[in-house]
Design a binder for these strands. Sequence first.
DNA 1: CCTGTTCGTTCACCCAGGTTAATAAGTTAA
DNA 2: TTAACTTATTAACCTGGGTGAACGAACAGG
Lengths: 191, 191
Amino acid sequence: MYTNLIAAIEHFIRLDDTEKDLISSLAVSKTYAKGDYFLRTGQVCRDVGFIEKGLVRYYGTKDNGEEITLHFGKENDFTSNYQSFLDHSASQRSIQCLEATEILVISYDNLQRLYNEVKEGQKFGRLVCEYLYLQAISQIASMYADEPEQRYLNFVNEYPDLQQRIPQYYISSYVGVKPPSLSRIRKRLTL
Amino acid sequence: MYTNLIAAIEHFIRLDDTEKDLISSLAVSKTYAKGDYFLRTGQVCRDVGFIEKGLVRYYGTKDNGEEITLHFGKENDFTSNYQSFLDHSASQRSIQCLEATEILVISYDNLQRLYNEVKEGQKFGRLVCEYLYLQAISQIASMYADEPEQRYLNFVNEYPDLQQRIPQYYISSYVGVKPPSLSRIRKRLTL
DNA sequence: CCTGTTCGTTCACCCAGGTTAATAAGTTAA
DNA sequence: TTAACTTATTAACCTGGGTGAACGAACAGG
């Protein structure tokens, strides 16, 4: 029984015991080493992952080869490329493990079973989408309104422990600046 | 019969004639003068609008009073503050008409009727949310990856006619720069 | 213990956008 | 027509991030 996964879903909808058993049967636990990929650019994203332990980064690559970290996923987060997952298109994003990571993998077909066989399954799908959308909207507002310094503070606030766990240049990419600039920002903040 | 609205919904789901009649009965046409507000900061967004004619801008206001245009809505676009609409929270965004505008207004309760009384109504709700989400994701990627110059070109490409219809400073705000900077960008591009 | 690698910081220089203000063109109102 | 207002452009100066390179600390492997 994957209790953390169940709890995460119950954050959106109610589940009875039968449904909890069903959901546990739909997920498969997989282990990834540091540096392994949950999803690579060009692949079709055929699963949604629930991170039991560890850390991933979700990133895209610019034409010039520069990698842009758009998101981090940590314990009890879901991770996937929703676009590729929905329409079976080739993913333009990669999801890489930054630590030894354990992920509960739910295939597209099994997620459809969850949607259809759990009473509030369809509602779960809608609520997750709404949640992702509102999160995206908030990220857009931050890109428009916040200076890099504020965006760094937002990051520290949103991911308090990640600062210790990942290289600085992933943070600078997420904040939207280059490493030397993040250094300057951090220096300004400590003075 | 609001045929443009029907056509827009049929972009997502199939409708039979009874459902088309129902939907037309759920919408109310309202007329707005240039400068009028469809939604003001602080209000709860209780409607979703379908723009039959005219143009709106969707914007937020920074702490320092600066307005940031996050989106434009034109003919055959839906407009709303989804967050405020969903959870009945006070809107942090405003939606203002930039021209004389006709909007088909659908109330929250009537949208629930559409969801529940149209066969694929729930699916429509989910598909619209997915559409909005993917659109938001693409805007985020552009903020990270594109220089202002490219973002201006994206704007021109996305809204070919709007350049003539709205003041430059709304465009510069949408692009994420100040008016003098957009002037410089435009000058660079014509040379 | 040494060596190579990785990673964060720092320096010097450059450049694009911000800021402020002046100007000019276009628009509206009287 | 004139006056007042709005809007886009331009200029001068400032600032913060980008770039390329050097340095040093931490760490891993031999």
